[in-house]
């Protein structure tokens, strides 16, 4: 149970970073932390004690962990890679235009 709570704490750290940090790069890092905590959550669900990796092998017949969440996590990592790359390039473009990484100074749009 404690491990789920730690995972939730990681999620909260991510949300805290997104809400309070002013640096664009730190916001991206906080988003990544949030994503990792969600992935960790999925992997934890699938974990079984004394179970092997989910690969079919000759002559091995022991219980496997659930392979589906691992596939989901792989997919979600790829998606996060795409989003993070996009965010990083947006930040670079924003720096070209505004000469700052501080989100409170990037306010050409109102509200």
């Amino acid at each position: 149970m404690i491990i789920y709570l730690l995972c939730f704490v990681l999620f909260l750290v991510g949300i805290y970073g997104v809400i309070t940090k002013r640096d664009l790069v730190k916001i991206i890092l906080s988003l990544a932390i949030m994503g990792y905590s969600a992935n960790l959550f999925l992997i934890l669900f699938a974990y079984k004690k004394s179970a092997l990796y989910p690969i079919l092998e000759k002559g091995v017949d022991v219980p496997m962990v659930d392979p589906l969440p691992q596939a989901l996590v792989l997919t979600s990592i790829v998606i996060e890679l795409g989003t993070t790359a996009l965010l990083v390039s947006l930040v670079a473009k924003l720096f070209q235009k505004y000469r700052t990484f501080d989100i409170t100074k990037i306010r050409r749009l109102l509200g």
Binding site: G14, G35, A38, T83, L86
Partner: peptide, 14 residues
């Protein structure tokens, strides 16, 4: 938009 979208996607993933 991308930051808000990522936050909501993570919530959906959970």
């Amino acid at each position: 938009y991308a930051v808000m979208g990522s936050v909501s996607s993570t919530l959906i993933l959970v």
